[in-house]
């Protein structure tokens, strides 16, 4: 059977690039979910708001550095400072949440910290929306230089290259910390067994705090990239990307770092390329708004057939 594509190569190339762009953001956020789950078996539902706070901190820096009028080398400096400020703000938020909302519930039944997480999530998004913005959105200054790279049918804007490149760099850095440093070894040990890790002389609380911090740094950078790409930011902006990133982490196998990354890109591509592929079936027409339906249908299917995700380990009972 031959499949006849009614659409052009350029169209599919566009979908591919769009999928990888959103996939990068999902992957960065998903890392925070999966790492915290790894050490605490907790779904940190406030992680989308950690991302949101980072996005606002980055916005603050960009506006302070001249907003739309920033030019030349100042743009690069502004972007770097925005990412640093976003990471710092996200980290501060995540550590405060851990200390106030999760640590006191460390030995409570697993449902309690989950409810606490949802509470923090609602609190933060409404605090920003109703407390500071009174319902209006803020818009990232569009300072990123125009220009695009054309490779055959592929057109990638400079912003998309920057977005994908910095995501990959952040993920590479995180991988290095987790796999190659003593700190990372400690985190992996805590993820396998808190008691046994403490017998190695690892300060378990500190390892947990570092895990939240690393996840928050990724989310903060994702917040700036999101703002640069989509422009509009508001207090509730973290909800959908947060749920999507959580989905990506589950798809990859929650607790697995490479799973979160692959799940993120996979979800990004499914929403774009996958949805358009379905549109190739005669009689099917799914506009862009259907992307969430496609994404979450996929989640349900994966959970039915592979409950531990693509890279998930079977949950083992601890001695």
């Amino acid at each position: 059977m031959t499949v006849i594509f009614l659409t052009s190569a350029e169209f599919w190339a566009d979908q591919l690039v769009n999928g990888l762009t959103t996939g990068s953001i999902y992957a960065l956020i998903a890392l925070g979910y999966t790492m915290v789950y790894g050490v605490l078996q907790l779904i940190n539902f406030a992680h989308g708001e950690v991302f949101m706070i980072g996005s606002f901190a980055g916005y603050g820096v960009l506006v302070a550095m001249g907003g739309d009028d920033t030019s030349g080398a100042m743009i690069a400096l502004a972007l770097v400072l925005a990412m640093i400020a976003a990471s710092a703000a996200s980290m501060g938020t995540a550590l405060a949440i851990e200390r106030i909302a999760y640590r006191p519930l460390r030995n409570a039944p697993r449902l309690a910290p989950l409810i606490s997480a949802i509470g923090v999530s609602v609190f933060l998004s409404h605090l920003v929306d109703d407390g500071f913005l009174t319902g209006r959105s803020k818009y990232y200054p569009s300072i990123f230089p125009d220009g695009a790279l054309e490779l055959g049918p592929l057109t990638i804007s400079a912003l998309q290259i920057f977005l994908m490149g910095s995501s990959l760099a952040m993920m590479g850095g995180l991988w290095w910390v987790i796999q190659r440093t003593k700190l990372g070894r400690g985190i992996r040990a805590v993820a396998e067994s808190r008691d046994n890790a403490s017998l190695m002389g690892i300060d378990v609380n500190r390892a947990i705090v570092v895990t939240f911090a690393l996840g928050a740094i990724m989310a903060g950078v994702a917040g700036v990239l999101y703002g640069l790409f989509y422009s509009a930011i508001r207090g509730s902006m973290g909800f959908i990307p947060g749920v999507k990133a959580f989905t990506a982490a589950v798809l990859g196998g929650i607790g697995s770092v490479q799973g979160a990354v692959i799940g993120g890109y996979f979800l990004g591509l499914t929403e774009t390329v996958g949805r358009e592929l379905l549109n190739e079936i005669p009689g099917v027409s799914l506009p862009n708004q259907w992307k969430d339906v496609v994404a979450f249908s996929l989640l349900v299917l994966v959970l039915i057939f592979r409950p531990n995700g693509i890279f998930g380990q079977k949950e083992t009972k601890r001695a």
Binding site: R185, G186, A189, E192, S193, A197, L199, I202, Q313
Partner: peptide, 25 residues
């Protein structure tokens, strides 16, 4: 140093990494 019941090996980490963890402090 405490070698716990059941040995407490970190299964997903290599033998070398397990040894390094012993010297974490």
């Amino acid at each position: 140093s405490h070698v716990p019941e059941g040995r407490g090996i970190f299964h997903r980490m290599t033998v070398h990494e397990n040894l390094l963890l012993g010297a974490y402090q």
